[in-house]
Computed example of a mutant assay.
Amino acid sequence: MLKRERLNQILKMVNENGIVTAAQIMEDLKVSDMTVRRDLDELERNGKLVRIRGGAQSIDYNIDYELSHIQKSTIKAHEKMEIARYAASLIQDDETIFLGPGTTVELLASLISDRHIRVITPSLPAFEMLKESFEDRVILIGGAYRSTTGSFVGPLANKMLSSLKFSKTFISCNGIADDEITTSSMAEGELQALACKNSRKTYLLADIHKFNREDFYVYYDLYNIDELITDSSVSQDVLDHYGEFTKIVQTKGDEK
């Protein structure tokens, strides 16, 4: 079987079943474990599927079901830290920044506890990381609590946010498809969109598995993002495509 045919067969299996194991692919296609690993890595780099432990998951799998906060934190943890480190390097002393909900943004929060800045966030995990060292320089936006992301949203949160201005805003998403940035919660999307509109510069933090993926609510336009920061494993084809909509910064894989 030619490589291209094999890749197409793997992609078909993943899309039809939602999740397939490496063992299933080995058995059905009569190939080695090493071949399956290489093929899955290539398909992920091209934004065709999501690698998970022991196999792969379809880009569109469970689009109507949002993963829990703990589940999200285990996906692409190394890549998320790459992104968070670069984002932290953009923050200057005395700035006022907004940190949106999301596990990548939480990693960013963990890296800036020694900075002399003001932070506004609806994210309870981010607030917990910063409250001891920041004292009166960190503000937690109140509202209705979403346990899935550990953030506060809704009319009260939006009202508070509407009167605030930021030097920089760092947001995340559940998916990016062409110029559309999507998430599963309308309330969470509205909150992040409002923060972007009230900020001098906006940064979208998105690892490889967010590309070519859609979720329920389109909350912002990629054209209006100043920089999309992604990890070192994203393929050139994906970078070229999304580079048509905004500036993309790709981190270096050897960053420590």
Rank of each mutant, 00 (worst) to 15 (best):
K165N: 12
L124M: 06
A109P: 04
R53D: 07
E79W: 10
I97S: 10
S73A: 05
S235E: 11
P101T: 05
D94T: 01
S113A: 06
N174Q: 11
K131E: 15
I83W: 02
L191V: 14
H209A: 07
Y86F: 03
I117V: 12
V153W: 00
I75Y: 09
C196R: 10
S235G: 14
E66K: 11
R51A: 14
G150V: 08
Y242K: 05
V238C: 03
I91M: 08
I120T: 15
I52A: 05
Q24R: 13
M81G: 04
E5K: 08
D136L: 00
T202F: 00
N8I: 00
G253E: 05
I120G: 08
S233F: 05
T230R: 08
S235Y: 12
R146L: 06
D178R: 15
I91R: 10
M34C: 12
S113D: 09
M13E: 13
G154A: 00
E132I: 01
K76Y: 12
D240L: 15
C196P: 02
E132A: 09
L40Y: 09
V20L: 12
G253Y: 11
T182Y: 09
T202A: 14
N62G: 00
N174D: 10
L49K: 10
D28A: 11
F134G: 11
V31E: 08
M81F: 01
L130N: 01
T121S: 10
L222E: 13
V14F: 13
P122G: 07
T183P: 01
G55L: 08
E5S: 08
K30E: 13
H241E: 12
V234R: 12
L40M: 10
Y145N: 03
D207G: 00
E190N: 15
S235A: 08
K12A: 02
E42G: 05
H209Q: 06
